[in-house]
């Protein structure tokens, strides 16, 4: 019984560690300086409410993409193409793919086992740092020049990153 309860607590800590940390910080802040803590809480609430509609809209888009272009479909298409076209396609897929690592990693490993190059797997994981469907939110917080520049540079550099990792992977196995 107590073991089960401890298990539940662990799950809570592991899944909500950030929320728990922030709550802890607020407790500290209110003891330390209640006025400023209240001010922080107000800033949080205004910022969150100002982007809530945008977040809701973006998730509407995320839902559509997830259902119409499923992860499985992306992986199936990725396995087919080779050469530079395959790498470009991998970069594009990486920017659209969403999901936690515990889903993405095994998915890409199964792709590799089916014959996809290490470069393809790596390009997907590098381009993953750009999220096309989230760009409106990124722009709201970071501005157009920053968001656009960062996204383009990340996608462009994803391909050399993939080729480099592939080379280093194959060097020792030969």
């Amino acid at each position: 019984m107590s073991g089960q309860r401890r298990g539940g607590l662990w799950v809570l800590i592991r899944s909500q560690w950030l929320l728990l940390t922030v709550v802890g910080l607020y407790v500290w802040a209110f003891r330390h300086d209640a006025d400023r803590a209240l001010q922080a809480l107000q800033i949080s609430a205004t910022t969150l409410s100002s982007v809530l509609l945008l977040i809701a809209a973006v998730f509407g888009l995320v839902g559509v993409l997830q259902v119409w272009i499923s992860r499985d479909l992306i992986v199936r298409l990725l396995g087919r193409e080779g050469g530079i076209k395959g790498l470009l396609f991998a970069a594009f897929c990486g920017t659209l793919l969403i999901g936690p690592p515990y889903i993405i990693f095994p998915l890409l490993m199964s792709l590799h086992k089916q014959g996809a190059r290490w470069a393809v797997v790596t390009v997907v994981l590098s381009a993953y740092a750009v999220k096309l469907q989230m760009i409106p939110i990124e722009v709201e917080f970071l501005g157009w020049p920053f968001s656009l520049g960062r996204s383009l540079l990340t996608v462009v550099l994803a391909i050399p990153t993939g080729l480099l990792v592939e080379r280093l992977m194959e060097r020792r196995s030969r």
Partner: peptide, 20 residues
């Protein structure tokens, strides 16, 4: 979106603390 709510609350809470 509902799965993300705790995280959103946490991150924006952090933003407030950060600024103050």
């Amino acid at each position: 979106l509902t799965r993300l709510i705790p995280l959103l609350v946490a991150v924006f809470g952090l933003v407030g603390l950060f600024q103050v």
